[in-house]
């Protein structure tokens, strides 16, 4: 872009400075609604074509309920599923919901000395708050959220234009399966919505990072946070 001090009105109109880009929350909302719309529209796969003449919605509904109860009962009867995949879904839902509501932060500050004390009195632990902005992940704020039956602290960071939410909460001593006494290596997964997640344990805290940035950057973020909290 040339840095002329003057341009013509025509150039100004065309240079993009008047262009209104869609906010991230809108993007998320549109995608969520399209998903819901798809779910409503597509007939249940187990609803064979011989049902078409009848009452397809009722048929689909009954089949759907039937399948759901089957799955539910299976879940009850088998081993409890690994906690992390339920938890993973909770994290994804909470993250997306926060983005959709455009109320992603309760405390808007890039100063870790403002964000950390803000959690006092709101949760019963003190989350370690670091600001790895030197590595390209500045802190932008924090919020309170509710995950796994308890209030948790969420620190919000940014990588370029991608928000990254970092959920931090103490491990349950009773429920831990032994290996989490010390730190564990960050485990990267990808939800089927396309969000990248990392989970790790460190000094008795559980960390979950989630973002729509690609897994490469999430991994780097996790490493930057780990390094920051190790001090």
């Amino acid at each position: 872009m040339e840095t002329k001090s003057n341009s013509s009105l025509a150039e100004k109109l065309r240079d993009g400075s008047l262009y209104e880009r869609a906010p991230e929350s809108l993007r998320v909302q549109v995608q969520a609604r399209l998903k819901a719309e798809t779910a409503r529209k597509s007939p249940s796969p187990w609803n064979g074509s011989w049902r078409m003449a009848g009452l397809p919605f009722v048929g689909g509904g009954i089949a759907g309920v039937g399948l759901c109860s089957l799955v539910f009962m299976t879940l009850l009867w088998t081993q409890p599923p690994p906690r992390s995949s339920d938890l993973q879904q909770e994290i994804v839902s909470s993250h997306v919901r926060a983005l959709m509501s455009a109320r992603t932060m309760d405390v808007l500050s890039s100063d870790q000395h403002t964000v950390k004390p803000w959690f006092n009195g709101r949760i019963d632990y003190a989350p370690p708050v670091v600001d790895p902005k030197a590595q390209g992940f500045p802190l932008v704020g924090g919020r309170l959220d509710y995950v796994d039956h308890r209030p948790v602290a969420v620190m919000i960071y940014q990588y370029l234009k991608h928000p990254i939410d970092l959920y931090v909460y103490p491990e349950d001593r009773g429920k831990s399966d032994g290996k989490s006494a010390l730190s564990s290596t960050p485990l990267i997964t990808q939800s089927d919505d396309g969000y990248s997640l990392v989970e790790w344990h460190q000094d008795g805290m559980v960390y979950w990072a989630i973002s729509d940035a690609s897994p490469v950057y999430i991994k780097r973020f996790a490493e930057a946070i780990k390094a920051g909290t190790r001090q």
Partner: peptide, 15 residues
Amino acid sequence: DPEKLAVRQDETELV
């Protein structure tokens, strides 16, 4: 003509 009307860099809001 918009091609001829000069606007400054800081006049975005005005436009």
